[in-house]
Amino acid sequence: MTTPDTPGDNRSVQIGGSVTGSAVVTGDSNTVSVQFQQASLPAPETVDIQAEIEALKDIFASLNNPTITGAAEEMAQEVAKPEPDKEIIADALETGLKRIQKLADFGDVIDKLRPHIEATAGWLGMHGHKLLPLVGLAL
């Protein structure tokens, strides 16, 4: 087997930094659409995390799905602790959001979720950044 020497035949991609909010595509005649909103994360100390988790819990509960409800309960239990583990909260929220994305009515729910995810991600700091693309937000 031979390796192509013609420039443009190599379809590999190397990325040296963040491509959040971008689409990386190889191939010919591709059309790509990237839709996201720029997130404006609040300072962690300005977020009422109890209120945000309660709002998310209410939205999650309205979807009548045991996995989503379980994720909401896990977040609520963790945030009630004197020193909540932000990674646990972020992981539970990610689980719930990924399950919600698979629901037929995700498009109806995303607008309700977005402001609460943005605020919660601000409070979570680096643990929350992975949540933003799940609701169409990017830094």
Rank of each mutant, 00 (worst) to 15 (best):
P133L: 06
E52P: 02
Q35M: 11
V34Q: 08
T69M: 04
D91T: 10
I68T: 07
A23G: 14
A43Y: 04
P66Y: 05
D108Y: 11
H116E: 11
N10H: 12
P66D: 11
D28N: 14
T26S: 15
A104V: 11
I59N: 05
Q14P: 00
G136S: 07
S40Y: 07
P42F: 06
P66H: 06
A90Q: 01
H127N: 15
K81N: 11
I88H: 01
L132F: 09
T2S: 14
K81H: 02
A61V: 10
T2P: 13
G16A: 12
S62N: 05
P82Q: 13
V135W: 09
G27I: 04
G8K: 04
V34C: 06
T31N: 08
Q37G: 14
A90M: 01
G70Y: 02
A76L: 09
M75V: 09
D28L: 13
A119S: 11
V109H: 10
I68H: 05
P7C: 08
E83W: 02
Q50A: 13
V109I: 15
E73F: 08
L56Q: 00
V47I: 05
G17P: 05
A23F: 04
Q101K: 14
L132I: 07
R114I: 07
E78P: 01
P82T: 12
Q101Y: 09
F106K: 11
E78D: 07
I15S: 13
D108C: 08
G128F: 01
W123V: 00
M1C: 13
D5G: 13
T26F: 11
A121S: 08
F60H: 01
S12W: 12
N65Q: 03
Q37H: 13
L137W: 05
S33W: 08
F106R: 09
L97C: 03
L132D: 06
M75A: 10
E74Y: 08
V25F: 05
G27L: 04
P84Q: 03
I15L: 15
S22I: 06
G17Q: 13
V32A: 15
H129F: 14
N30Y: 01
K130Y: 05
H127M: 09
N64K: 13
L113R: 02
G136A: 08
G128I: 03
P4H: 04
L93F: 02
E74I: 10
L137V: 08
L56D: 00
E45N: 07
P115E: 09
L132T: 05
L103Q: 15
I100E: 10
I59G: 03
A104S: 15
G136K: 02
E54C: 03
L93H: 03
A51N: 11
T46P: 00
P4G: 03
V135A: 10
E73G: 11
M126H: 12
P7V: 06
E87L: 11
I89R: 00
A72L: 00
S18F: 09
T69Y: 03
I89A: 00
P4E: 05
A76S: 14
D105R: 14
L93W: 01
K86H: 00
I89C: 01
D85A: 03
A51I: 02
G21H: 01
Q77K: 15
I68C: 07
F60L: 01
G16C: 09
L137T: 04
L137A: 08
D111A: 15
V135T: 11
